[in-house]
Design a protein around this nucleic acid. Structure first.
Length: 194
DNA sequence: GCCACGATAGTG
DNA sequence: ACTATCGTGGCG
């Protein structure tokens, strides 16, 4: 079976982690079964200086986990209805996280290419909720983790992040990474789809 | 304590 | 373009 990526993978600059998460396999254990999906779209959220990051106001109760050790799951609720999942990056004490925005379902007949397209639907499809906050995704016992299945490194394209227009200069930074022409990548409101 | 406001997605 | 819906954090 595929082993979870080690903490060292996450303990690096957030942009590098984001880029390299593309093509990796998201593994979700659900009781006896497991759901696998290839990551095709992510966004990097840097530390306190990043005006689009939840870390911008310092280690508040919600964002404190972003300042903690890498390799943990940061889940939050947006618009009162959608969950978003992130992996904490950088060294302990340095804020950073990668938002997973879309994944391509692997060997699951019940899911079409769009089932995990967009951060909200991704969490819905994988049943990730606030209860999953703080999961250590480097443990072999984790119910959610990322693995490398040896697939070739995909092509990577980048664009500004989605839905952070309020962030001034940071809204323009190209911190979204995605696999071009992949049907599971979110349209990004049409502008930066492929 | 309050209250305005989203790292969204589906519909019109 | 509109809005459902609730946890978070700024403010007093």
């Amino acid at each position: 079976m595929e082993a979870p990526l080690p903490r060292a993978f996450y303990a690096r600059p957030t942009e590098a982690v984001a880029r390299e998460l593309l093509g990796k396999v998201l593994v979700r254990r659900k009781g006896l079964s497991r759901l696998r999906a290839r990551i095709v779209e992510v966004e990097a959220y840097l530390g306190e200086r990043d005006a689009a990051s939840h870390a911008r106001r310092g280690p508040t109760p919600r964002a404190a986990i972003m300042f903690g050790p890498p390799g943990f799951l940061y889940v939050y609720l947006v618009y009162g209805m959608h969950h978003c999942m992130n992996f904490v990056t950088e060294a302990d004490g340095v804020a950073g996280a990668v938002l997973v925005r879309a994944a391509e379902p692997l060997d699951d007949a019940d899911m079409d290419a769009g089932a995990l397209r967009g951060p909200g639907k991704l969490c819905l499809g994988l049943d990730v909720t606030l209860r999953d906050r703080g999961t250590d995704v480097t443990l072999s016992t984790a119910t959610l983790f990322v693995a490398d299945d040896g697939a070739a490194r995909p092509a990577v394209r980048r664009s500004p992040r989605i839905g952070v227009d309020y962030a001034g200069i940071w809204a323009a930074r190209r911190l979204r990474f995605f696999v071009p022409h992949n049907p599971s990548v979110s349209g990004g409101v049409g502008r930066y789809g492929t």
